[in-house]
């Protein structure tokens, strides 16, 4: 029995060491002051600003379209629903390079919808708009999946009560469902932001890499890897800090969800 417990402890120690050591190593070589100092160059700041803008735009699209879609999937049953949910979740497990190729094949200049995209006057490849498309493609399943779960776990009687009192479904969605599902939606939002900020392969293949236009933080890190390791470390440190903050906010959101249930 003690051997069993010991091996459990060893396994946890190995997991912790393996997962935290590389992350900690980013901060070991250089002091915080040095890290911040090497961020002070136009390329790094442009990358941070672009990542922020593109992620915000992708997030807006995901929330506006993804929320009602998730609500529909959570509250209706229909034939083929499982298939629809699987299709929506597919980008979760797609390798980024596949996402890049898929976007090119679909909406790239030579893609099946390339003509339509061009006719509409929108340029995606090698443009910031293309970055937003890539981020939206890879990040939206993270939000939608979480949102479906959040809506599905809302007590049905709440919505029924609001309908009985004469509220329309739309009013019910905004006044009852979204507030009740908010912790889950917030957690999904945070996961989506995390995925969008970290996107690399699809962005490089579909949108290219140009400072201030398409070079997001992960692309800037790759660009600096060979020439300016210090600055690559600094940008990586920023992403680690932001990602940790995001994860923490997910935990807090889920914590308040637990709290919300507790007082009953």
């Amino acid at each position: 029995m003690t051997v069993f417990r010991l091996s459990l402890g060893v396994a946890l120690a190995v997991v912790l060491l393996f997962l935290t050591l590389p992350v900690l190593a980013i901060f070991v070589d250089s002091s915080p002051a040095e890290l911040i100092g090497s961020l002070d160059e136009p390329g790094a700041l442009d990358a941070l600003w672009l990542s922020l803008r593109a992620t915000a735009a992708a997030l807006a699209l995901i929330l506006i379209v993804g929320t009602p879609a998730a609500y529909l999937l959570a509250t209706r049953s229909f034939r083929g629903k499982a298939l629809v949910i699987t299709l929506v979740e597919l980008p979760l497990v797609l390798p980024p390079a596949v996402a890049g190729i898929a976007l090119l094949a679909a909406v790239g200049p030579e893609g099946i919808l390339g003509g339509a995209v061009e006719a509409s006057g929108i340029e995606l490849t090698l443009q910031t708009a293309g970055v937003v498309v890539a981020l939206t493609f890879v990040a939206s399943p993270f939000y939608i999946r979480q949102a479906i779960a959040a809506f599905a776990s809302v007590d049905r009687t709440l919505m029924d009560a609001s309908r009985t009192l004469g509220a329309s479904e739309a009013r019910g969605l905004f006044r009852v469902m979204i507030p009740a599902a908010l912790p889950g939606l917030a957690a999904g939002t945070a996961l989506g932001i995390g995925r969008a900020l970290g996107e690399f392969g699809a962005t490089l293949m579909f949108a290219g890499s140009f400072q201030g236009i398409t070079q997001t933080v992960p692309l800037a890190i790759y660009d600096r890897f060979s020439t300016d390791f210090e600055s690559a470390l600094a940008l990586s440190a920023v992403l680690v800090a932001v990602s940790a903050a995001i994860l923490l906010s997910v935990k807090l959101a889920q914590g308040s969800e637990a709290l919300g249930v507790a007082p009953r």
Binding site: L104, E110, L204, G208, D223
Partner: peptide, 16 residues
């Protein structure tokens, strides 16, 4: 500004 020649060729072949 592509990280290697394959990236450049890819952008050309894809018409980007």
């Amino acid at each position: 500004n592509e990280p290697d020649v394959r990236g450049i060729v890819g952008k050309l072949v894809q018409g980007a």
